[in-house]
């Protein structure tokens, strides 16, 4: 059985790591559409998979966040990736299975997974 007191151990570990974080200017932002359309289409497991993958790979320069309706409801779940200095990349019809390759290819190695982008879907 877990207890909330276990969070103190996480806090102590994270306090040591906090200085290792990159400056906010060069962080990669990954944004998941979590409006009605996104949630109904399956955004919750996609966001979960992203958080798990980013944590597993210990990607300190990546921020995962949520937003409202991105505007192309029929292509939800949608994930947008903002790499500083580069054009935004929009991944559509996302699934938890697609998340692993986007994290390893795009977020780690810097190669856009073209086949999952809005350009390939349209």
């Amino acid at each position: 059985m877990k207890t909330l007191a276990e969070l103190q151990a996480i806090r102590d570990k994270m306090r040591q790591q906090i200085d290792l974080r990159d400056a906010s200017d060069d962080r990669i932002r990954v944004v998941v559409g979590m409006a009605t359309c996104g949630i109904a289409a399956g955004a919750r497991p996609v966001l979960n998979a992203l958080l798990e993958e980013v944590n597993k790979r210990d990607l300190k320069n990546v921020t995962v966040s949520q937003t409202g309706c991105i505007g192309v409801c029929r292509l939800e779940p949608i994930v947008e990736v903002y790499v500083p200095g580069q054009e935004k990349v929009t991944y559509v019809k996302m699934t938890p299975e697609k998340v692993a390759s986007i994290v390893s290819e795009h977020l780690v190695n810097g190669r856009v997974v073209e086949e999952y982008t809005i350009g390939a879907a349209e």
């Binding site: 969070l7 996480i10 306090r15 958080l51």
Partner: peptide, 28 residues
């Protein structure tokens, strides 16, 4: 409030490590 009481004020609850721990805790 009780989560923040354990973590202190400087850590964001949105940190993936904290979120994933909470997820396991809540599932239990």
């Amino acid at each position: 409030e009780e989560i923040r009481a354990q973590l202190g004020p400087e850590l964001s609850l949105a940190e993936p490590e904290i979120i994933l721990w909470l997820k396991d805790y809540l599932q239990e």
